[in-house]
Design a protein around this nucleic acid. Structure first.
Length: 484
RNA sequence: CGGAGCGUGGCGCAGCCUGGUAGCGCACCUGUUUUGGGAACAGGGGGUCGGAGGUUCGAAUCCUCUCGCUCCGACCA
């Protein structure tokens, strides 16, 4: 028997953060690499998480009057050509469909045939094809605002894929809104960013910094890009969601025109906004510990896992009956739960639950049954949080316990974020700060730094980039860090 | 796309230098004893070594090409 490892995940975060990340995903059974370059298979446990995220965020945007629709995966090449800056930004990472048929070759291999007159691009984003429809659907100011969203997959042929963080194909929502006035569009882009912050913090327990992207980092074709930036436990930044104010750029190139109240013809003002499965990577890297995943309670596939502890087979029936009673009550209380009735040995069930990051683990054996109680443990605290109470007490307080866990997770991550932002005065201090490997996180500096001609080059030299100009600094400061 | 490393049962690896048709740990199956923070013993099933080509009597091992993965960089709405 190999020596029992100290932690459930090897290597630990300190030893090798990148490897640790991969291992957490594998140990939690969330996803694996697909037999397609840069793509991943999201396994049921990982997808259940995404479904919960979808359900919640979908509800939020519907409250804003956004309607869901679906547009084609394939975009005519000519559509992308319509917005010059846009295609410039995406051209290098487009997968292109050029044929529509396969024929048997001499050696039995299939070869593409039937070349298309106009190639299609597998959507890297859908501004152009949705804008094309909007151009037809919008005739009058009475048709505005128009707010559309689609839950879809997109493809961007990235040079260096990483599970959840940057896969060639990923799942996201992309919202596309159109307005009468510049002010409305501007406000909308900020409102959607606010929704992202709300969602990230209040459901995923991910603290984020909201701000505007610098010119360099702006979405191709946008007038302004707003972002929520998160900080991972290794101090690197993750762009967790973006909201773009397109101004009239896309309306102009796609012909989204309407007749205004004064009977003049006007171009619409559009926005687009998106969050993706990348957020899952963020949750792993912000919340996970050396024993694996820690699921934020409000989106966890299971909020509670019940582990029957059966030492003597003759007790099994009674214990299961006892557990059934708990299950009924949890169901009525709208708690997502799962009972592990697998053939695994008890300790393995426990470690399985730990690695999957189930927020609360409930243990029920003969001991609990006889006393009419249960024992539960909070994942984020571990065995020191073992609590024994009656079933009714548990069911009555479980929502609070989950809420407290959420609050603690958010507070922990917020503290980490806040304590890893360093104010610096000039480029030299900035560079020397990051030269020391012990220093992680972001540096904050006056935006006048960007006037320096060497600024971008010097950042690049050290793998640094501007993350955003935070709203909380009124746009007068810029955050700089290494990013995923 | 540049640099480095790696592809051998489900997973992690050894074997390769000094060619002779594959081995270990975990997992899996059966049985017994076990079971509250990763069980022990016994027995058993499963791979032809990423792919293609070449050298050779013979290739996991040598050579060429190719695909993919990981890490660093470039790229990244």
């Amino acid at each position: 028997m190999a020596k029992k490892p100290r932690t459930a995940i090897t290597p630990t975060r300190d030893e090798d953060f990148a490897q640790w990340y991969q291992q957490v995903i594998k140990s939690a059974d969330m996803a694996e690499n697909a037999p397609v370059r840069g793509c991943m298979i999201i396994k049921p446990y990982g997808f259940a998480l995404w479904e919960n995220m979808q359900r919640i965020f979908d509800g939020m945007i519907k409250d804003f009057g956004v309607e869901n629709a679906y547009f084609p995966l394939l975009i005519p090449l000519s559509f992308l050509e319509k917005e010059a800056e846009h295609i410039d930004g995406f051209a290098k990472e487009c997968a292109v469909v050029t044929h529509h048929r396969l024929e048997q070759g001499e050696n039995g291999k299939l070869i593409p045939a039937g070349e298309l007159e106009e190639p299609y691009v597998i959507r890297p984003t859908s501004e152009t094809i949705i804008g094309d429809s909007m151009a037809r659907w919008i005739q009058s100011y009475r048709d505005l605002p128009m707010k559309l969203n689609q839950w879809a997959n997109v493809m961007r042929w990235e040079m260096r894929p990483r599970m959840f963080l940057r896969t060639s194909e990923f799942l996201w929502q992309e919202g596309h809104n159109a307005f009468e006035t510049a002010e409305e569009a501007h406000e909308d882009s900020l409102k959607m960013l606010g929704a992202y912050k709300d969602f990230a913090e209040n459901y995923l327990a991910l603290p984020v910094i909201t701000g505007e992207k610098t010119d360099n980092e702006r979405f191709p074709g946008a007038k302004a890009t707003y972002t929520i930036e998160a900080m991972m436990q290794d101090g690197k930044a993750l762009q967790a969601g973006t909201s773009h104010d397109m101004g009239q750029n896309f309306a102009k190139s796609l012909g989204i025109k309407f007749q205004a109240r004064d009977e003049s013809e006007q171009l619409a003002h559009t926005t687009s906004w998106g969050i993706s499965t990348r957020l899952i990577g963020g949750m792993i890297m912000i919340h996970g510990d050396d024993d694996g995943m820690i699921m934020p309670p409000r989106v966890a596939p299971s909020q509670v896992i019940i582990i029957p502890i059966i030492r003597d087979e003759k007790d099994a029936g009674d214990i299961n009956k006892y557990i059934n009673g708990l299950e009924q009550k949890l169901k009525s209380a709208n708690i997502r739960f799962k009972t592990d009735n697998s053939a695994e040995r008890t300790p393995n069930k426990m470690w399985g639950a730990i690695k999957k990051g189930v927020p609360l683990r409930v243990e029920i054996g003969a001991r609990e049954m006889e006393q009419g109680v249960l024992t539960y443990v909070r994942r984020d605290i571990g065995k020191d949080s073992k609590t024994t109470c009656s079933i009714d007490e548990f069911v009555g307080s479980v929502q609070d316990v989950l809420d407290n866990m959420h609050d603690d997770m958010l507070a922990r991550a917020k503290t980490f974020l806040g304590s890893n932002i360093k104010d610096v005065d000039n480029i030299d201090d900035l560079i020397s700060y990051f030269k020391n490997d012990a220093n992680i996180g972001f540096a904050r500096i006056d935006i006048s730094i960007m006037d320096d001609a060497d600024f971008e080059a010097r950042l690049k030299e050290h793998s640094l980039s501007t993350r955003c100009m935070p709203f909380e600094d009124n746009g007068k400061k810029v955050l700089i860090g290494k990013a995923y």
